[in-house]
């Protein structure tokens, strides 16, 4: 009897797990899924101040990498809101003397407490990268891939206004 319970239990439990697995599609261990948030760009940009966010998902950060120092118009620009599955991301960029002087996150992935922790950890690193690159070409912070991608896209949208 006991063995029947264990075998039946394992099979039934496994079946439930498989259904759960199917319900939440599993990302392969790569960054392919990261281009998906771009699809939401603009649609969610309620607070985006005039950002058009016309950039397609395929646009590479390298396109903007050429913008050297002094390439931007001075001012403060707010990027579009990028929605990710861990929450929305929106940044504001401040340009002075043609350079990116500061990137202020208005909102970072915050859907749960762990996401908040990750955002707090990633925000200074991402700003450092942006200041060093003087563009939106930031590398993803490990453990904060969704936040980094949202950050990159929102920053790009802001810089597009500054062109």
């Amino acid at each position: 009897m006991r063995r029947r319970v264990v075998i039946g239990g394992i099979l039934a439990g496994a079946a439930v797990i498989v259904v759960g697995w199917e319900a939440g599609e599993v990302t392969p261990p790569s960054h392919q899924a990261l281009s998906s948030p771009a699809g939401h760009t603009g649609a969610d940009g309620s607070s985006a101040t005039g950002s058009s966010a016309t950039r397609s998902a395929g646009s590479s950060p390298a396109d903007t990498a050429q913008s050297a120092s002094g390439a931007y118009r001075d001012g403060t620009y707010t990027g579009s809101t990028i929605s990710t599955r861990f929450g929305n991301v929106q940044v504001r960029v401040q340009v002075s003397g043609g350079d990116i002087a500061a990137v202020t996150p208005l909102r970072l992935t915050d859907r749960d407490r762990r996401s908040v922790m990750i955002s707090q950890h990633a925000a200074p690193l991402l700003q450092q990268e942006a200041l060093a690159a003087q563009s939106a070409s930031v590398d993803a912070i490990s453990g904060a891939t969704y936040t980094s991608e949202g950050y990159r896209q929102s920053l790009q949208a802001a810089l597009d206004q500054a062109q």
């Binding site: 759960g20 697995w21 939440g24 990302t27």
Partner: peptide, 10 residues
């Protein structure tokens, strides 16, 4: 386990 798998791509 299924709850967690269904909620987010692991």
């Amino acid at each position: 386990i299924a709850l967690w798998l269904a909620a987010a791509p692991v």
